[in-house]
């Protein structure tokens, strides 16, 4: 589904991705992209979506190289991290606009009902709270039947009821055989929902595989501790290096 080879990206002198090789197979699995702040999670996702243009490397989606292309995005549903929309449009107009752009069958009514947005449809987006905007964001992201779903921090600003519904929705998508990529900082959410982990550190993939394998590798029973132990090892190796050099 996604094949990335030797991906490099630097913003000025700041190298964010430093030789990423990643292969995510098609269908029915949820991959969580994890890593400390600034490790390149969002940049990696944005490279896949064509928002950030890599310095070198190759990305293939469904077997086709994406450089300079836009049609491949028909196969992707994306939830951005920050929900910000044109202030003066109503929720209904925004949904119509995205439907107008994509020209594909959408299940927006089901999602509007699921997230309780019926009463907000004629409200201008400027008048909505952060949580409600995130629900609109989720509706836009999930209303298409695309084989690849990319969610950047899907849980931010959601109330517990919406969280429960989001989990159910993600499971439903998984069962429908979709490939799902998620970034989040909430480890309990990852443990509950993800099958595989891609752990980024300093712009490289430090670990890729099932959650259990990471826990075994780090000899920890809990994912949060396993991640913390990687970061601890990294910090101590850095300080040892600094002392010896």
């Amino acid at each position: 589904m996604i094949k990335i080879q030797n991906l490099h990206k630097a913003f000025g002198k700041n190298t964010v991705l430093n030789g990423i090789d990643l292969h995510i197979k098609k269908g029915g699995r949820i991959t969580a992209v994890l890593g400390p702040n600034g490790s390149g999670k969002t940049t990696l996702i944005k490279c896949i979506l064509g928002m950030v243009i890599p310095n070198t490397g190759n990305i293939q989606i469904q077997g086709k190289t994406i450089a300079g292309q836009w049609q491949y995005r028909k196969a992707i549903d994306y939830l951005p991290q920050i929900a910000q929309f044109p202030e003066n449009l109503t929720v209904r107009e925004l949904i119509t606009m995205i439907k107008d752009i994509r020209q594909a069958p959408a299940q927006d009514d089901k999602l509007i009902q699921l997230f309780g947005l019926e009463n907000y449809l004629d409200e201008r987006l400027i008048n909505l709270s952060g949580g409600t905007k995130q629900k609109v964001n989720l509706t836009l992201a999930f209303m298409y039947d695309s084989p690849l779903v990319i969610l950047d921090e899907p849980t931010s600003g959601l109330d517990p009821v919406a969280m429960v519904r989001l989990r159910a929705l993600i499971r439903e998508e998984k069962q429908a055989g979709k490939t799902i990529m998620i970034t989040t900082h909430i480890m309990s959410f990852v443990e509950e929902i993800a099958d595989d982990i891609v752990f980024l550190l300093d712009g490289k993939i430090y670990f890729q595989g099932p959650i259990q394998a990471l826990q075994e590798q780090q000899q920890e029973t809990n994912l949060e501790r396993a991640i913390a132990s990687i970061l601890d090892q990294k910090t101590s190796s850095l300080s040892t290096h600094a002392l010896t050099s």
Partner: peptide, 17 residues
């Protein structure tokens, strides 16, 4: 500047830059 985040949402859609 105000429409920057919305532009990001549009960039993820199948549409030319």
């Amino acid at each position: 500047y105000n429409s920057r985040e919305f532009t990001v949402l549009l960039l993820a859609q199948p549409i030319r830059r």
